[in-house]
C-alpha cells in the first residue's frame, strides 16, 4: 500500500516538471513550465470558482438537510417501526452508485422529464427547461443532484449524535423555561458541534474531489460552466493527452487537499 501511494505521488510530482511524459519516450526536465501553463489558464480559474460554489452550497445544504431529517427522525412522538421505515427511505439516495444517480437525474431532468412536468403543472415554469445543458441552470442542477445524493451520510451520523445527548440536559433547559428553539440553540447545537465540524470537513474534502457525478451528467459543460478541478485535470490527461500539464494540476489539487486535511487532522487531535 505504501508503495502504491508514496511512489505515485513522487511520480506525479516528477511528471509535473517534465515535458510531455507517457506520450513522449524521453521526456526532458522543464521546471515549472507546466505549473505556469495551468496557473495562466482561464479555464483553471473557472474550475476553481465552480468547485468552490459546488462545494460550499453542497456542504451547507447537506448539513441543513441532514440535521433537519435527523431531528425529525429522532422524534419521540412516533413509533419505532414508523421511524425505521422513514429512516430507510431517507437513506436510499446514499445507497446508489454515482453512475446510477447520474443517469436517473438525467432522465428526470430531461426536457420532457418528470421534473419539468411537475414544475409546469404546478405553474412554476411555463416551458420545459434543459436543466443540465443550459448555461444558467447546469451548475445549480449538478449541485442539487449532489445535495440529494450526499445528505444521508450526515443524517446517519447526526442521528447517532442526537441519540447520545443526555435527556436531563433538555429537562434542565425546560425547567429553566427555555422554549424548543432555545433548547435547539443552547443544547442540541453545542452537543452536536464536534460531529458537525468533523462531518463538514470530511465533506469539503470529498466534495472538492467529486468527479464521477459531473462527468456523467454534464461532462464539465456546457462551455465549462460546470468544469471542476477534477474534470479539468481529467480532460487534460485523457482527452488532450497532456499528461505533464495534468500532473501539475493534480499536484496543485494535492496541495489544496493537504491543507484541508491538515486542519481536519489537527481538529481531530485537539479532541482526543
Amino acid at each position: 500500500m505504501f508503495i502504491l501511494t508514496l511512489i505515485p505521488i513522487v511520480m506525479v510530482i516528477s511528471y509535473s516538471v517534465m515535458d510531455n511524459v507517457i506520450v513522449n519516450k524521453s521526456p526532458e526536465f522543464v521546471g515549472f513550465d507546466n505549473y505556469i501553463e495551468v496557473l495562466t489558464d482561464r479555464v483553471f480559474y473557472t474550475a476553481v470558482g465552480n468547485t468552490l460554489f459546488f462545494t460550499g452550497v453542497s456542504v451547507v445544504a447537506h448539513l441543513v438537510l441532514g440535521l433537519s431529517f435527523a431531528m425529525l427522525l429522532n422524534t419521540r412522538l412516533l413509533g419505532t417501526m414508523t421511524k425505521a421505515l422513514f429512516r430507510v427511505v431517507y437513506i436510499l439516495p446514499w445507497l446508489f452508485t454515482v453512475a446510477i444517480i447520474a443517469v436517473l437525474w438525467r432522465l428526470m431532468l430531461s426536457p420532457n422529464g418528470i421534473v419539468n412536468y411537475l414544475l409546469i403543472s404546478g405553474g412554476l415554469i411555463d416551458t420545459g427547461v434543459e436543466w443540465l445543458s443550459s448555461r444558467d441552470t447546469a451548475l445549480p442542477a449538478v449541485t442539487f443532484i449532489n445535495i440529494w445524493a450526499g445528505y444521508p451520510f450526515y443524517m446517519i451520523s447526526l442521528l447517532a449524535g442526537l441519540q447520545g445527548i443526555p435527556r436531563d440536559l433538555y429537562e434542565a433547559a425546560t425547567v429553566d423555561g427555555a422554549n424548543s428553539f432555545k433548547q435547539f440553540l443552547n443544547v442540541t447545537l453545542p452537543q452536536l458541534k464536534p460531529i458537525i465540524i468533523a462531518m463538514a470537513m470530511l465533506d469539503v474534502i470529498w466534495t472538492t474531489q467529486q468527479f464521477a457525478l459531473i462527468w456523467m451528467t454534464t461532462g464539465g459543460g456546457p462551455i465549462n460552466v460546470t468544469e471542476m478541478l477534477s474534470t479539468y485535470t481529467y480532460k487534460l490527461a485523457f482527452s488532450r493527452y497532456e499528461f505533464s500539464v495534468a500532473s501539475a494540476s493534480a499536484v496543485i489539487i494535492l496541495l489544496f487537499s493537504m491543507v484541508l486535511s491538515f486542519f481536519y487532522v489537527r481538529h481531530q487531535k485537539s479532541r482526543d
Binding site: 505515485p8 505521488i9 511528471y15 507517457i22 493534480a250
Partner: peptide
Amino acid sequence: IIVSVQAVPPITLLIPYFGLMV
C-alpha cells in the same frame, strides 16, 4: 502515513497509476 493516505485525492493518483499499470 496510513491516516494521511486517506486524504490524497484520487485524481492525483490517477495519472501515475495509469502510467504504473501500463
